[in-house]
Amino acid sequence: MIRDYKIVLASASPRRRELLSQISLNPVIEPSTVIEVITTRVPEDAVMELSLQKAEDVARHQQPGTIVIGADTVVAAEGKILGKPKSHQEAYEMIESFQGKTHQVFTGVTLIYCGTNGTTVRSFAERTDVHVYPMTPEEIRLYAEDEEPMDKAGAYGIQGRFAAFIKGIDGDYSNVVGLPVGRVYQELKQICEQEEKA
């Protein structure tokens, strides 16, 4: 049973924590302090790389029987990775680049089971295509000047005011929020089943 294990989330994201509590998992929050290094421009590879760095950083000092979840989300518009905006102007530019078009959201997840005889590591990336309605310059400006886009990859939150501009998605909604919880739960279940057989 997953609930028999201590689960640690290597992230301070309130959205990831809410998504996990939605599926009855209440992890210990221990944000990673690692300096993130990306060695690729391929969005799927970049998020898996970052999620692994975060999970490994936090797993180093865990007791046996702990599962660490590391995650990283990026938005990619026409192949270009969009991180969190550093200014409202940058938020405007990011949104302008994908309004009226389809872009991708990738979340990389690494699960590390800390066992008495070493660790088990699983990494994967989930992709969701997001279709955005055309927006006027005024609509972009009003949204970009708000605080909502400032702590979010790609400068928007699908679960916030930006929902007004979402035409539809192909893939997992929770992935766009920051963690594909269905896939996370299934992977956790497999880790636990393997450990129980061992």
Rank of each mutant, 00 (worst) to 15 (best):
S87A: 11
K86R: 15
Y92A: 03
C114P: 02
T102V: 15
T116G: 03
Q104V: 13
C114W: 00
T110D: 02
E90F: 06
K86H: 15
H88S: 09
P85R: 02
E96I: 05
G100A: 07
L111G: 03
M94D: 12
S97C: 14
K101E: 10
V105I: 10
G100S: 05
Y92G: 06
N117Q: 14
V109N: 01
E96Q: 14
E96K: 13
V109K: 00
F98H: 15
F106R: 01
H103P: 06
K86Q: 15
K84Q: 07
F106G: 00
S87I: 14
A91Q: 04
C114S: 09
I95W: 05
M94V: 12
V109M: 03
A91H: 08
P85T: 10
M94F: 14
T116F: 06
K86P: 11
Y92R: 04
K84D: 08
E96R: 10
S97N: 13
T107K: 01
E90L: 08
V105C: 04
V109C: 02
C114L: 04
V105E: 00
E90S: 05
H88L: 09
H103D: 11
E96W: 11
Y92N: 06
V105F: 06
E93S: 06
Q104Y: 12
E90A: 03
F98M: 15
Q89M: 10
H103V: 11
G108N: 05
I112V: 13
K86E: 15
Q99H: 15
F98P: 05
S87E: 08
V105N: 00
H88N: 14
C114H: 01
G100R: 07
A91K: 04
S97M: 13
E96N: 14
